[in-house]
Design a protein around this nucleic acid. Structure first.
Length: 123
DNA sequence: CCGTTGACCATAA
DNA sequence: CTTATGGCCAACG
């Protein structure tokens, strides 16, 4: 045990977060990494998804920080991902981008309560 | 144990 | 908008 990680534990951890993404929402690689407790390891999320096979993971809901479906080696994979998302009511621009402000998954966190919405709003 | 591969992100110029 | 750079880890042969 050179490392405290069991084989596949890290990936499983990432998959677990992706499974939390509700239908019709998307998350970024960095976001998943953060939720999995590995900030700055956005790439690792991509690696985990690359290694994905028969897991019951909604991989299509993970896109890059630009709101685009990340380019992949396999042709057609991007189109597939897009179609799967559109099937969930996710809308793409004419540029092939998703409005993250609108479709980004925002898990409720006890720490994130309040924040904005406090100020502004004349009411 | 080493080298290679791989679906990223933020910042600077 | 593009180009370049630093960050950083797991799985496989």
């Amino acid at each position: 045990m050179s490392r405290g990680t069991t084989r596949g534990e890290t990936y499983a951890r990432i998959y677990a977060q992706i499974r939390r993404i509700p239908r019709g929402r998307v998350a970024t690689y960095g976001q998943i990494a953060r939720l999995a407790g590995m900030p700055s390891h956005a790439r690792l999320v991509g690696y985990a998804l690359h290694a994905l096979s028969d897991e019951n993971v909604p991989w299509q809901r993970v896109i890059n920080a630009r709101g685009e479906v990340s380019p992949r080696a396999l042709p057609g994979a991007q189109g597939l991902q897009r179609r799967l998302l559109e099937g969930e009511r996710v809308v793409f621009d004419h540029r092939g981008r998703v409005d993250l402000q609108r479709f980004r998954w925002r898990p409720r966190t006890v720490e994130s309560r309040t924040q904005r919405a406090e100020d502004s709003s004349s009411g």
